[in-house]
Design a protein around this nucleic acid. Structure first.
Length: 283
DNA sequence: ATGGGGGCCTGCCGGC
DNA sequence: TGCCGGCAGGCCCCCA
């Protein structure tokens, strides 16, 4: 569920609590998430100052004073909870520990950052900051949608002659970073492209048009996350999900939102995942 | 090289 | 009320 906008929202929420702060203690409550934690993870986190929080695709990277970076992926159900902030930046106090609180970072400023992930599709690892891009999980990820390497000519070229559905192509992190099922559905709706169409049958004009649409869809979702961050100070401190209204995702059998269209949103399953689209507007 | 599918994992929800 | 099947899906990995 956490796609690029949700991960970016988490990063922005954590930054004021963590950046420039020392991890006084790392509480690691289990040996693994999706994969085993790196050796001595707690010890390698303890005493390190978080120099910077970054995002690459759906990963958060915390660059540490040691020269290592903590890599975090929220998986499907990963959440970050901020509590116990002594500076009064966030009003919520320590909540009771919850089931699936797998890792808790106790910051020297008194804040706690809790990683909670019921389904444990998430991941954490430590890597050398300078060679982060070569880490196995990052090495083959494609261009950032807001970066200079993601542009019309690139997307036209990379979709050309491909035989897989455009839905699958946009979900492929090697083609573009950060999109998941929700935002691919929303993107294709705006582009008026049927999710089942072969990528190679998307015209150059349509492929070029996908670039600004992808950016708009993600940017609007990040903006919605930003409004959540304002509420966050008065709420429960949970980062990772926020209310956002979608045009097609999750709206099977509801009316298409396109002005003048009287069709209903359809749902099909593509490689095990739901695609929502308007059969009238998207061809 | 490419495309497709399995499997991981738990919470939730509808049906009986 | 309780059980149970189905569903949610990011992403590695394996297979053809």
């Amino acid at each position: 569920m956490p796609e690029l906008p949700e991960v970016e929202t988490v990063r922005r929420g954590l930054a004021p609590v963590m950046e420039g702060q020392v991890i006084a203690r790392a509480e690691v409550n289990r040996p693994n998430l999706r994969w085993p934690f790196p050796p001595d993870m707690a010890a390698r986190l303890t005493g390190q100052r978080v120099e910077r929080l970054r995002r690459r695709s759906k990963y958060i990277l915390a660059d540490l004073s040691s020269g290592e970076s903590l890599l975090v992926h929220l998986g499907m159900s990963g959440r970050m909870l901020v509590s116990g902030d002594p500076l009064g930046q966030f009003v919520h106090d320590h909540p009771a520990p919850e089931k699936h609180d797998h890792v808790v970072l106790h910051m020297a400023n008194g804040a706690r950052v809790t990683f909670n992930d019921p389904r444990r599709f998430g991941a954490m690892d430590l890597l050398d900051t300078l060679t982060a891009d070569t880490h196995k999980l990052l090495a083959s990820i494609g261009p950032e949608p807001f970066g200079n390497d993601f542009h019309e000519a690139y997307l036209v070229a990379v979709l050309k002659d491909r035989n897989l559905p455009i839905k699958s192509a946009l979900l492929d992190q090697r083609i573009v970073a950060g999109l998941g099922n929700i935002y691919v559905c929303e993107t294709l709706y705006r582009a008026r492209i049927h999710p089942g169409r072969k990528a190679g049958h998307v015209s150059a004009q349509e492929a070029a048009g996908l670039v600004p649409i992808i950016r708009d869809v993600l940017q609007e979702a990040i903006a919605a996350g930003g409004s959540t961050l304002r509420d966050f100070k008065q709420s429960d401190g949970e980062l990772g999900y926020f209310q956002h209204s979608f045009d097609v995702y999750g709206r099977e059998a509801e009316p298409c939102k396109t002005l003048g269209c009287d069709h209903q949103v359809s749902r099909i399953v593509q490689s095990g995942r739901s695609s929502f689209y308007c059969p009238q507007c998207q061809r």
